[in-house]
């Protein structure tokens, strides 16, 4: 079962690489913001998979909860900033 989760984790990392392409290439800043939000949710799952693989889910659940929270607040603040500056 561990190997299955390891494969899933590596697959997630590959998907993060794909998303990073959008973050780097993204024609406008807003595409980069969408890419960052996508990367955030994927790393949340990677974090939890690491917790499950190392059999310390109790600790990693708290960390991933905080990560999801900070990712959400980051997206909101970024969106508010981009809206105010108006240059896209």
């Amino acid at each position: 079962m561990n190997t299955f989760f390891l494969i899933m984790g590596i697959g997630m990392c590959l998907l993060v690489m794909l998303c990073l392409f959008r973050v780097i290439y993204g024609p406008t800043i807003l595409n980069r913001a969408a890419g960052i939000s996508a990367v955030g949710t994927k790393t949340l799952i990677i974090l939890l998979i690491i917790g499950v693989v190392h059999r310390r889910v109790e600790m990693f659940v708290d960390i991933s909860m905080v990560y999801a929270l900070l990712n959400f607040i980051g997206c909101l603040v970024l969106a508010k900033y981009l809206e105010r500056t108006g240059e896209v």
Binding site: M59, D62, I63, V66, I73, L76, K80
Partner: peptide, 22 residues
């Protein structure tokens, strides 16, 4: 579990900033 004064304080500040931004 992982935590303690510093991390808790930072999360409190993050919540505060969310309140200020909205």
């Amino acid at each position: 579990s992982p935590g303690g004064g510093f991390q808790g304080g930072v999360i409190l500040a993050a919540g505060f900033i969310l309140l200020v931004v909205t």
